[in-house]
């Protein structure tokens, strides 16, 4: 069975098949083959041992969500975001793709809208504050990633927002 796994912006093709040995798998990552002993631990845990690497032991935990194929994979104390067989993940930080075109400003965390500092139709400059969301007694200011026109404001002052909520669109 093959999977397309994206981690840190790179997609690798992973092919997995069982070996005759119970709990052992032949795992090919972009053509490089590893033998892996894998055991599930509860619903989200995986204990991996790599026999050919001095029986190196890796404590892995996979938490799925929120979208299908999206997961957080922890290896030891390092965490990775992975997408399995998904569309290429859209990067949240505009810096990677430049700031041309329509920009959607999304709250990365739940909270409460403290201030809305622009109205639909306003012309605004890059870096100009748009919306302040408060959570845990801390204020977080969301600024316009580009100069342009406010196409949409998705929230009102005082409103509770969930993580992923669209705050504004600048075009």
């Amino acid at each position: 069975m093959t999977f397309a796994v994206e981690v840190n912006g790179r997609i690798r093709t992973v092919a997995i098949e069982r070996t005759p040995r119970e709990g052992q798998f032949r795992v090919s990552v972009d053509g490089h083959v590893h033998l892996i002993e894998a055991a599930r631990v509860g619903a989200s845990g995986l204990s991996l041992i790599v026999p050919e690497k001095g029986r190196a032991s890796h404590d892995v935990e996979v938490l799925e969500g929120p979208a299908t194929g999206e997961m957080t994979v922890r290896v030891g104390h390092d965490s990775f975001r992975a997408v399995v067989n998904g569309r290429r993940a859209v990067r949240a930080d505009a810096g990677e793709q430049g700031v041309s075109g329509e920009q959607r400003i999304v709250s990365p965390m739940p909270g409460r809208v403290l201030r809305v500092m622009a109205a639909e139709g306003d012309q605004i400059g890059a870096g100009q504050p748009l919306i302040v969301v408060e959570a845990m007694k801390m204020e977080n200011e969301f600024r316009s990633p580009k100069s342009g026109r406010v196409k949409h404001i998705g929230v009102r002052e005082g409103m509770a927002v969930e993580a992923g909520r669209l705050l504004a669109i600048v075009e």
Partner: peptide, 27 residues
């Protein structure tokens, strides 16, 4: 994270899908 750790994460994500069964979307 070290490159090896990242590779283990890739393997872990795929194995999670494999062991969970076909619903995970493996081809």
């Amino acid at each position: 994270a070290a490159p090896l750790t990242e590779e283990i994460a890739v393997i872990g994500a795929a194995l999670h899908g494999f062991l969970r069964g076909p619903a995970a979307g493996g081809r």
